[in-house]
Simulated assay, not measured.
Amino acid sequence: MSLTCLGAIRSSYHKFSEKEKKIADYILEKPELVIHQAINEVANDLNIADATVFRFSKRIGFKGFQAMKIALASELLMQKRSDQEEPTTNDDEMTLTKKIFNSNIKILQNTLDMIDKHSLKKAIENIHMAKRVEFYGTGRSAVIAMDAAQKFMNAGLRAAAFPDPSFQLMSATHLTKDDVAIFISHSGSNKETMNILKAANAAGAKTIGITAFPKSPISLNVNIGLYTYADGTEYLPLEFASQVAQICLIDALCYHIFQQKSQRTS
């Protein structure tokens, strides 16, 4: 699988220095401009050295700035082709169904490209060693959290989730350093979920966030961040698209735990 530029930036954003975040923000906000710029033009716009931009390109897995631009251009072209395949009123049943499936496949593949293997491994280890795992989310994310808790219980863990935010907050205050709290939020900035996260951190629990935005308050305040990709369209809003990736990521975590539990008992 070829390395994607935007995915690599999003997955590693939380590890960047301030200068690296400056470059990352520039590329994320102006990808169409960057593919036509020379390295010195990017450096001049950001008032940093050419070498800093070059090192950033290598930091996210490319041989240099030119290789990063080629990957970025290819990524933008694929996105444009995907946009041209959006459903229309002229589509028959099978054509429409194929387009929806292809859109979800793209979201899952982009999320897979964004996953940082070290963060994933650490999350799995923390969940496996936890005495209790609790899932938190509000609105649509509460439904994902409830489903996740049931799956992890089936995998042999003590897991729980509560639909009401007030119960979630109460539960978070009773967590311990041996517990893991997993926060699900597309935006990563929901105020109720953020208050629950503060309570979990104060209680000493290990915290994991599943969001679509590495720079969000929740992402910046959890111990481990796992990120989903969501490319909203007119027919599929961002939050709906994000749920596809959230469910798949949770399923992957759950299967890892189930596998480890099975190995211990065999």
Rank of each mutant, 00 (worst) to 15 (best):
T207D: 03
I127R: 01
E192D: 13
H186A: 12
L175F: 15
A172Y: 05
R132I: 03
P237D: 06
K198R: 14
G139C: 12
N221Y: 02
G188A: 05
E192R: 08
G156Y: 00
L120V: 08
I127E: 04
A148N: 02
V222H: 04
S216E: 07
S187C: 06
N201W: 09
S187Q: 07
F152P: 03
V180M: 06
L226A: 05
I210W: 06
I218A: 01
M146S: 14
P163V: 11
T111P: 00
L175S: 10
E125W: 14
T228C: 10
T138W: 02
A205K: 01
M114G: 05
I182N: 13
A155S: 15
E239Y: 14
K198C: 05
G139K: 10
F213M: 12
R158S: 13
L236N: 15
G137E: 01
N110L: 14
R132Q: 13
A172G: 05
Q150P: 09
Y235D: 10
I208T: 12
C248F: 15
T173V: 04
A205R: 05
G225P: 06
S119G: 09
L175E: 05
T207Q: 01
Y136I: 01
A155N: 10
G156M: 06
M170F: 02
T193C: 11
L157P: 04
H128K: 15
L220V: 01
A205I: 09
M114S: 08
T211L: 01
L249R: 11
I124R: 01
C248E: 11
A123V: 07
H118K: 12
S171C: 07
L238P: 11
N110C: 13
L238M: 09
L157V: 09
V244S: 00
T207A: 03
A199N: 11
